[in-house]
Amino acid sequence: MTGLLELHDVSLSFKGVRALNALSFSVAKGEICALIGPNGAGKSSLLNVINGVYRADAGDIVFDGLRFEAIHPQKAAHLGIGRTFQHNALFRRLSVRENVLAGLSRHGNASFFENIFRLGRDGAERQGFLARAERTMSFLGLDRHAGRIVSTLPYGLQKRVDLARALVAGPKLLLLDEPMAGMNQEEKEEMSRVIREVNRVFGSTVVLIEHDVGIVLNLASHVVVLDYGRKLADGAPDEVRKNPDVIAAYLGTVH
């Protein structure tokens, strides 16, 4: 089994507390994979290990054929791993457009002098960046808010800006940390639709964390259930739904 992303026996602990315990699973190219599990199950930690914010104690990761034990977040970005955050980590004093443009930074190839004196490759870079940012913003319905400072936007729109910033760079793998947290049912369904579109139109493989099991089982084609840093179940939504361990630990008994 080879996937776009493979984890082999990944472990992580914080001062003796095991956050991830010899975790292995594989994410196939093009799928939407959901991580579910109770608070403290290690879901966010797992995303942080994949894109290098945390360093695993043991195990290794294969992304797009490249094997590594630890990776620098910038390197992960340059390999094509995009990421959104559970708690908005936007550049709060910048406009929506500037936030999205910042997401393109890794594609900048003009040198410092070209950039500040507007020489050589700078013109093409500026235009190319703007065009990509505009396309992404209109895809996510953000074009009308492009000039707004992000900290003045309502929460739901900020979540979209976070997604736009990750998406604009054209990531091969998109890690979404609770993209629907704090949303009502209608907004969650809207966000699900957007994620499905992103997956279909941009071809990005998606790994997401979400607590709303109803939403997840509809959206994802692959579900991994975590509990106390261990993998409890791994498979298609229907299999996972029937798994007795999952029912006992997380979904609750179905009568």
């Binding site: 970005a77 910042a102 930074s105 990750a166």
Partner: peptide, 8 residues
């Protein structure tokens, strides 16, 4: 952290 994660 976000700046680093998007590749700056």
């Amino acid at each position: 952290v976000a700046a680093s994660v998007i590749g700056i």
